[in-house]
Design a protein around this nucleic acid. Sequence first.
DNA 1: GTGGTCTAGACCACC
DNA 2: GTGGTCTAGACCACC
Lengths: 142, 142, 142, 142
Amino acid sequence: MKKKIKILEFRVDAKSAMPIYEQIKEVIKYNVISGTLVSGDRLMSLRDLAMRIKIHPNTIVKAYYQLEVEGFIESKPGKGYFVKQNRKIFSKAKKDVFEKSVREFISKSTKLGFGMDDIFKELKKIDKERTMRKSEEKDDRN
Amino acid sequence: MKKKIKILEFRVDAKSAMPIYEQIKEVIKYNVISGTLVSGDRLMSLRDLAMRIKIHPNTIVKAYYQLEVEGFIESKPGKGYFVKQNRKIFSKAKKDVFEKSVREFISKSTKLGFGMDDIFKELKKIDKERTMRKSEEKDDRN
Amino acid sequence: MKKKIKILEFRVDAKSAMPIYEQIKEVIKYNVISGTLVSGDRLMSLRDLAMRIKIHPNTIVKAYYQLEVEGFIESKPGKGYFVKQNRKIFSKAKKDVFEKSVREFISKSTKLGFGMDDIFKELKKIDKERTMRKSEEKDDRN
Amino acid sequence: MKKKIKILEFRVDAKSAMPIYEQIKEVIKYNVISGTLVSGDRLMSLRDLAMRIKIHPNTIVKAYYQLEVEGFIESKPGKGYFVKQNRKIFSKAKKDVFEKSVREFISKSTKLGFGMDDIFKELKKIDKERTMRKSEEKDDRN
DNA sequence: GTGGTCTAGACCACC
DNA sequence: GTGGTCTAGACCACC
């Protein structure tokens, strides 16, 4: 049985300040380190992904190549690209992606007019909600 | 002098669970409520945006139409779509978008293996950095 | 027992200056506010109505969608569209439809060469007839 | 130069209680007596009208035939159907159509919950508006 | 079966 | 050029 290729969400914009291949790398990296893609999973073929996101195949080549160099995937000529196993690198990347994500979140909030205090307040509110819900579920089980 | 149309960053993916027109709406809404697009600004024409993000014009029509119903933009047939002035609606939307953004941020963090405590820690770290930098800038000016 | 779907009279013309979806909206709105369709009634399915009036289903989608936004019906995906309960909106719509109907009536009369005075005369005549008939019915019962 | 055929608005519903040929007759009659169609105007060909309103040509034949018998149009074999001149008949028809229109208007209003008094009130309101507007226009010209 | 989304492409009015 | 409407038809998820 052939393993199905996981459909990832590629939100990409050719006109962005960030090059397309970087955007593609980001998506794949995120899916690898979050565990959506696991060791041995095959990526979409260069051509398929190119068609899917309406981008020139060469751009996909560049993204895949760099992901290979960085240790996230490996190419098996004639078979495709596959996710590698590499705890050290993944763990480092997790921290980087998380930190970047936090900074982007702050920046986005700021642009909307919300400061650090608003962020903390909202986070605490949601944290409380979750704690409540969990304790309710606990009660239901008893 | 003709006012230039602002180039927005549209990251959309046809294969996403979220419909394309919703993705487009989100981008435009965000740019309106964050002040990037202001009252009177013209949006890209239906056809231009369609070409730009390689989507069928009808899908853009649907996004623009709904944004009009929701009070963010207005259509002037033969001329284009323009950002409206609507404080009440924008202010409500800001809160909604912010809350959604917080929840997405938490969810993304969780998927990466970081919990509420990690988030608070990272946020505090960055907050501290910023405070430090600001006080340094103050010192520099003195 | 399955509730029967009420058959409405849809007179639409693709070549009219009024868009087809508006014509459809008008018919359904009228039937809702006049009480022919009541809360909970199911509308014809998109495809059935499309076949019935020989119009493309997408046009029906547009009409139903807008009626939903305006609060007259609601969609239950996989089940159908259903009439909502919404006194405030219905009462407002009644006034609007009535006023529009009066204006159309005047305009039609004018095109036939009858003025306001003819209209009042004819209305009074009919009003009298009715009053007479009612009093006769009363007499019959006594 | 060929005279252009006037595009009439045919709102017709095959599922109506009123037969389709009657609906067609009504539309054409109304356009003749209101002066939209004048003596000598050619009607759409049987086939064209059938296609236009997605109805079987035989139904159009029946409608045209009866309109001919009633003196509104005449057939010129090989050329088409043409509007006739017939003051007496038209004048009689005007009265009939007007009276029918008034009764339909009352009936529609009643179904919406508006009585004779509401009708009179609304008509007077609109009449007043019109008188006002006319006198303003008069003032403008002076 | 139901509604929902999307593409492809035509044709319209208005500027 | 601009937006607006419509048809034809595909494919999806949910029931």
